[in-house]
Write a protein that binds this DNA or RNA. Sequence first.
DNA 1: CCCTAAACGAGACGGTACGTCTAGTCTTATG
DNA 2: CATAAGACTAGACGTACCGTCTCGTTTAGGG
Lengths: 175, 175, 175, 175
Amino acid sequence: MQTTEQLLEDVGFDALTIEDVAQVAGVGKATIYRRWPTKGLLVFEAFGKEFLLQQPPPDTGTLRGDLLAALRGWIRTVNGTVAGRTLAGLIAEVQRDPALGDAWRDRFVRPVRDQHRMLVARGIGRGELSPRADPEVLLDLVFGPAYHRLLQSHLPLDDYFAQAVIDVIISGAGS
Amino acid sequence: MQTTEQLLEDVGFDALTIEDVAQVAGVGKATIYRRWPTKGLLVFEAFGKEFLLQQPPPDTGTLRGDLLAALRGWIRTVNGTVAGRTLAGLIAEVQRDPALGDAWRDRFVRPVRDQHRMLVARGIGRGELSPRADPEVLLDLVFGPAYHRLLQSHLPLDDYFAQAVIDVIISGAGS
Amino acid sequence: MQTTEQLLEDVGFDALTIEDVAQVAGVGKATIYRRWPTKGLLVFEAFGKEFLLQQPPPDTGTLRGDLLAALRGWIRTVNGTVAGRTLAGLIAEVQRDPALGDAWRDRFVRPVRDQHRMLVARGIGRGELSPRADPEVLLDLVFGPAYHRLLQSHLPLDDYFAQAVIDVIISGAGS
Amino acid sequence: MQTTEQLLEDVGFDALTIEDVAQVAGVGKATIYRRWPTKGLLVFEAFGKEFLLQQPPPDTGTLRGDLLAALRGWIRTVNGTVAGRTLAGLIAEVQRDPALGDAWRDRFVRPVRDQHRMLVARGIGRGELSPRADPEVLLDLVFGPAYHRLLQSHLPLDDYFAQAVIDVIISGAGS
DNA sequence: CCCTAAACGAGACGGTACGTCTAGTCTTATG
DNA sequence: CATAAGACTAGACGTACCGTCTCGTTTAGGG
């Protein structure tokens, strides 16, 4: 497990092989396969806990503040650590391993969204949101652009971006 | 090339191997490697042209109409054909192959964004957008959520989603 | 191993590929490469044991009889089985693979010559040979012509040849 | 042709490819294939003439002298030049390419043996040979051991060897 | 305290695809 | 019009990992 994290830092998601993990950990391959059926799930477990710990639910008193804090936290983790490349690698892996996809949605996407949905609910309670707004769409609007930039690398994930995204979501871009 | 498209339909991005392409095409492997150094670039080329053809630049007269049409077009292609899975597979591949990443940004992301940026520019010209709005962020807000749903499969890519996204972007979700 | 022998009979040394051996044996290629680094060494091992078993050291009581028996035995094996072509193929391979050459000399040429040298030593002990005769040269004179005919195929390897060779070696061709 | 000889010296028979010959000669591959169907025949032609020129028929006045001179000439050429490895390479190639085998026997083995057979015939005429001696077997006895040492590399091809071989052939090894 | 059974390290195994290489044929464009 | 240049089909090469499977060998808990 620590071996996995170590190797994620040293060689990255792609170059990591279960064979390496076993050897570096001084462990038989079968021992790993007994616990994690695929490389994706192995890395997911090592990555997931770590990542979620770094995303504490914000509570700033305003919806704008909460969403901005959440997005900034995500960006900080993704930019500052190896987590960004690992996250990208895992999402890539999800495209080819349906079992990992299920785990990913159940144990990563859902909990994170549940957490964030509460921010939105709080905003609705405070009357900061139009009652028409769909919370699910809102969450996609907050994080979709960020994942987009992570995976396409066409533009930087910086604080200006975070603010601009949240501003448009709250206030709209129309004149 | 047609062989690649055929195999993408038949077996999908992941199960497609250069070895198969060569055999089905009745071609030596070296011939393929001579032209496309990796599977990613081979598929990208087969996919790119096709995909771009199916995304004609809309011109509805309003920014909202244009953005909605563009997003709907993307969703239609992604949902209705094998292009969705291929697109996901390519984005996954981009995370692993830096050379493909460069090609991807240069020959796919950039042209598509250039096209869409014109819609936004037209909207600005018509005074439909706050002069404060950053076109790049706007583009990420329109398509980021869609890519997000494509890659995470947490929620469907339907017409309701398209409208809701565009509505928030134009008018904001704040009360 | 039996697969190798089988394929040597079926298709011959040249047409034999490690890929075929693996497939026919129902074995991964790596398994073969793990044990035998080259096709030459694989075939050598399959061939060597078999061949040596068919060359029991003769003991007829006279040097002439022993040498003739040894040469006849060699000719019989080489003419009667696939071993002749395999032997030729291996000697050909030895010309291009130095590692095989080393193994060939150590594990084939040397043991065979050791055995035959004992026949000569016995002859010397019985006073059948001029003390001037060099055993090494004698061995080359007995088998060199036979290998020559095997590899050049200019004339048949028959019993008349065997007798004529041994006769000249013992008695000389001078008048 | 000179290119072939050059490359034989520079890289040896095995490493020589028709592709290289073509490129070094500044010639299309097809041009070479038009004249020589295989690498074996190409090299054979380049090698054959050269080699035969270096083997002038000796005439020393005695059979022993002639045979010794012929064998020494062969050894000198084989030891002193790249011809030795080329000769070994060609004999190896002959084991795989039947067409080359035919050419080899017709245009190399036969002429050389014809020449040497005349030495023997001269010896018979001079009464130096037992009338019982078979000239063909004699030739194999003279050169077979030499080819044997060339191809097996188990012992050196030196002048002592040449003399010992001829001595036994003329006088026999029996006491 | 032993003894047995589960888990373990080590790594061989069958299998797949990789990317490279060479052979010999076929195409093209030039001089 | 022949030719150099080199692209092409074909297929074996040797490598890397995969996921499965024996092997002994620890290592614990129950007799």
